[in-house]
């Protein structure tokens, strides 16, 4: 119950910090994901994208999928 309320409040108020919008997120998503997959600091390279993923479920799903797909291409970590 409390978790559900907390999630609802999170959805209502969104991320606290500055965030980019959906269009900028789409533009930067491939670079961000390739940096993540390479173990680099993607958040330093694209500030505000992580916060946007917190506030936007659609972009969040697409980010999850792109990262998973790129990781699948990379094959099992050796």
């Amino acid at each position: 119950m409390e978790d559900r309320d907390n999630e609802l409040i999170g959805r209502l108020l969104g991320p606290a910090g500055p965030e980019i919008g959906c269009d900028a997120c789409f533009e930067e998503l491939d670079r961000y994901v390739d940096l993540e997959a390479a173990g680099k600091d993607a958040d330093a390279a694209v500030p505000g994208l992580r916060a946007h993923l917190e506030g936007c479920p659609a972009c969040r799903e697409e980010h999850e999928s792109l990262l998973a797909l790129v990781r699948e291409d990379q094959g099992p970590a050796s």
């Binding site: 789409f26 491939d30 670079r31 994901v33 697409e62 999928s65 792109l66 797909l69 790129v70």
Partner: peptide, 22 residues
């Protein structure tokens, strides 16, 4: 050229598919 071309292309397919599924 800031990502792999495949990663860049994938995002268009994922976006189109995700929107259609929703």
């Amino acid at each position: 050229g800031l990502s792999k071309l495949t990663t860049w292309a994938y995002k268009f397919a994922l976006y189109e598919a995700a929107v259609k599924v929703r």
